[in-house]
């Protein structure tokens, strides 16, 4: 199955999806040292995001993610890519600065279409997400 996004940035990647209908903010939601979701109320609390393709609903919270994706990438404790239904400028700026693949804006709720643990391929230039 192939889904088309309105926005894409970064290089093509392929990997395991970590999926939830919840928001994303690097400062609010993550223990960035240990690479896990740490906000107790987040649907992915306790899950490791390292090397995963995060598929979530929307960008939340503040502006720190713009720096933090770069910092996380420098330590290698970073998601492989981030996929969102709705994106804010901070995620786009952070992805551009940190070299993290980002796609956003699908017809329908992408978190309902991709199964947790599925293998997916992202091609930001073509704006496609393919479930393998």
């Amino acid at each position: 199955m192939i889904y088309t996004a309105k926005h894409g940035i970064g290089k093509a990647v392929c990997g395991e999806a970590l999926v939830a209908h919840d928001g994303f903010s690097a400062r609010y939601d993550l223990d960035r040292i240990n690479g896990v979701f740490s906000r107790p109320t987040h649907k992915l609390a306790g899950h490791s995001y390292r090397g995963k393709i995060l598929i979530l609903d929307t960008a939340k919270g503040g502006v720190a993610t713009a720096w933090m994706l770069h910092e996380m990438a420098a330590r290698g404790v970073v998601p492989l890519a981030i996929v969102l239904n709705s994106v804010n400028p901070i995620l786009a700026q952070g992805a551009a600065f940190g070299g993290v693949t980002l796609m956003a804006g699908f017809d329908g709720d992408i978190t309902a279409h991709v199964r947790n643990g599925a293998n997916v391929a992202l091609d930001p230039a073509a704006r496609t997400l393919r479930v393998l």
Binding site: A64, W67, R75
Partner: peptide
């Protein structure tokens, strides 16, 4: 990424840059 047609001049900028966010990198 957001489909901007061009740039708009700004009169001032304000930078969030605490070092917990920046890290060594």
């Amino acid at each position: 990424f957001f489909g901007a047609a061009d740039f708009v001049p700004v009169t001032q900028a304000h930078i969030m840059a605490d070092t917990e966010s920046l890290g060594e990198a």
